[in-house]
Structures are given as structure tokens and as C-alpha cells.
Design a binder for these strands. Sequence first.
DNA 1: CGGTCTGTTGAAAACGATCAATACGTGTGG
DNA 2: CCACACGTATTGATCGTTTTCAACAGACCG
Lengths: 230, 230
Amino acid sequence: MSLKNPYQNISFENDCFLFKNLNDNERQKLLQISRLKTLSKQQYLAMQDSPSDKLFNIASGVAAVEKVSSSGRKQIMAFLFPGDFVGLSHFDTYEYSIRSLTDLTTYEFKRNDLTSLAETLPTLKVNLNEIYSLILSLSLEQVYLLGQLKACERVCFLITQLLKRIPEANADKLDFPMTRTDIADYLGLTVETVSRSFSQLKRDGVISTISPNSISILQQETLEALAAID
Amino acid sequence: MSLKNPYQNISFENDCFLFKNLNDNERQKLLQISRLKTLSKQQYLAMQDSPSDKLFNIASGVAAVEKVSSSGRKQIMAFLFPGDFVGLSHFDTYEYSIRSLTDLTTYEFKRNDLTSLAETLPTLKVNLNEIYSLILSLSLEQVYLLGQLKACERVCFLITQLLKRIPEANADKLDFPMTRTDIADYLGLTVETVSRSFSQLKRDGVISTISPNSISILQQETLEALAAID
DNA sequence: CGGTCTGTTGAAAACGATCAATACGTGTGG
DNA sequence: CCACACGTATTGATCGTTTTCAACAGACCG
């Protein structure tokens, strides 16, 4: 009963919010109403405006929560990493699409199943509330990021975020699971500005590039100072 | 048991999320653990980093949820209007300050009182969850606003928001309860840019000004097209 | 080998920020 | 009642950043 997560070296259910503090019996029940789903990259788990009957808990890989407006502008609201939970909402259609950026495995729950089970498992209910609180807190960080930080600072913020959230990332080697376009759509910038920010950070000796999608962090303190949001 | 809200013409408890679908008995219980608090303008209901032991439900007036970073930059995360609930969080200190922009009355709850009561009143629990969902949804709108809209569009978005949320506002007369600085801190702009956006909207005949803090909306469709976020 | 996708770089333009000056409204005291 | 000061809003000129448009480079794939 301890599925090894291919994306990290720890047993998944022990390390993610949804399963937190559940005993073996409770975990069993939760797993029973879930379905392990596998997707290749660039596929949609959920589509904006379609019925929001399912919720997902990322097991491995990275996904993006995104919104495309009628004017064609796209904003990525969040990146999702292993352990992240998504789909909580009281609306009957998804407000945002969820797209896999890498190959992805995820636990899928039917909304009704999960809410019913939460009624009988108080700890699960607590977990769901904490997840809500956490998501809100992250989205308010995003508000500050977009309202106050300059282009280069935003890129630094993303790098520190990835460093924390991608299991096998470290200062010596950080692989970006998303394209420059995705980064731009997340940070409210253009691809060119993102690219220029990377170049500037390289020029300043804060990072160095192994390949376009893989960097080393040379001055972590500088990076974190630039990314500071409090 | 129907307090008249000085800021609007409806009985408050009938029209706000926290009290929704509660019967008279349940309302009584909720009111019993609440304290009606009155503040003059520019006072703090809650301070960033202080213990987050209280929650508030705005009865009348307008407030701002704001964050000041160590670098001195200020971001207003949200404006709060009558009926709005604030303070939900699983952190033990407030992540943001709450400041009254006008004279304000608010129901104050001790966190423990409210969570205990919610255990015995399922409807209240549902309401709290819906409030969470709503706040998250608004904060994601804010992410899109800051990530994708131009200065003038942001101002239009704020105007349509105020039109919806301020009870006595209408297209003929909309009074701004906040200063240009507050607007700028909310929209991630400077005072000057906000002011120029207003001037431009005036020049284009979309709005006209009664006084600096009071406008008429002449072309609501144009305004809403500019503010469109979906 | 050529095509496509992704990322980088350059030059020009647009946008918003900054700095500085001016107007306006309100309240106070002469 | 007027003069003045203070806080707030507007406007202008200039500067800096980001966007836009365009060219090019590298990786991957048929």
C-alpha cells in the first residue's frame, strides 16, 4: 500500500496533504474511491467550462492550471506538482483548464465520492480545508508577484518555487518542466522578456545554464533576495 | 433581529453568505457568538503577522486587505464590501492587514467559537466552505487582472466591480470609497497611471466625473468590454 | 536535407513609472 | 469672509521597462 512515486523517492501518500494524518484504514477507503490516471504531456485533465465533477491529486509530473479568455489572452494561474490537489470549487463547471506539462499520473476522485467520504472521515475533511487554505494563500502570493515584482524578480520567484516543489531539483541542477511560453503565461510577461531575464541572471552570475531547460544556481541568496515577497 | 445596515437598504443577515439558509434559531446562535464592532475610517481590524484569532463579516462600509512587504511595496489583495467575510486561514498569524477605508461596522467572531459552532450547524459549515470557494475564485480573477489587463482595462474592471458590490451605486452615480493611492495599490499601478486612465475614459466619453471621487457611467457596454476577463 | 518548434537576441515602439509642477477641495485661523 | 495650508488629484516631461516585430540559432524529426 505504498505506491512509489516515479517522480520522487518517497512514498506518495505519506507526503501529500490529502492523505495527511490518515490511518491505514482511512487511506484504504480513500484509495478505493480513487482511480489512478496516466496522461502523456500536453493533455487536458479538465477543460474550462466543462462539468466540474472530478478532482485530482497529482502523483507525479507537472501540470498547469490555465485560463484562456475570449480575447485570447492566456494566464496560467498555478503550476501543479506531486502532492498537489486541484479541482476544489463550488461551481458546477471548471473555471480553468488543467493541462499536463510532462507525463503525469494522478489520483482522480469523483466529487460526490470524495465529499461523502469526507463526511465520515473528519481528518479528511480537515485536510480538504487545509488544502483550500493553502491554495488561497498561494494564489494571493501570485497576486503580489504580478502586482509588485519586476520581470526579473518574477523569474527569480519562479526558480525558487521550482527549487522547493520539484522533488529531484537542487541548486546544482534544476530542470524546467515547462516551456518559456508557459513561464511567460504564468508570470504575466512575454516569452522574450522571460528569455532576457534568464540572460541577465546568467550575465550577473546568479545562474548558469546547462541547457536551455536546465540551470545551475550559483548565488542562491541573491536569487532569493530578488524573489522576496515579504 | 434584523439589523438595518446603514450602507444598504436590506436586512443584513438575509443577504450575506455567512447567514445564508440558516433558520432563526441558527441565526440566533451565530449572533450570540458575534460582537458588533464599529470603526472609523483608516483603522486596522487586523494587523499582518499578529495572531489570527478573529474573523470578520463586514456589515457596512468598505475595507481593504493589504500586504506590505519588507521592501516597502504595498499590494491591496482585495476590497471588502457589506456581506463579505474575511479572516479564514489555517495560519496562526494574519498574512495580511485589514484596514477600514470608510466608517465600518463588522461582526467579529473568535475563530474557536465559529469553528465549534460550525461543528454543530452543518449549514454554517457549508456556508464557510462556499465562502472559501468564493474568495479563491475572486483572488484568481485578481491574478488574471494583474497578469493580463492593461492599465485602463484594470481601472474599468474596478469600476464594474464597485458597481456590483457597493449597494447604493448605480450607473448615474458611483462614489469611490477609496483614494487613488488605494486604487493604484490594488491594481498594481501608480497613482498617476490611475489618474491618467480616468482622464482617458473621460475623454473617450465612457465616464464623466461629478467630483474626483464620484463618476457617472455613460457607456456601460464599452466599460464592460474593456474590463472583460473571460 | 529541409521543416518545425523552441529559445535567444536586436531594434523600435508603446506603455507605465518617475519626477516635478500645478490644481482643487476642505478645514483652520486670522 | 478671505488667506493659507494640507491632503488629494491631475497634468506634463522625461526616463526606464516591457512589448512588439523581426531575424536568427539550435534541437528534433521526418
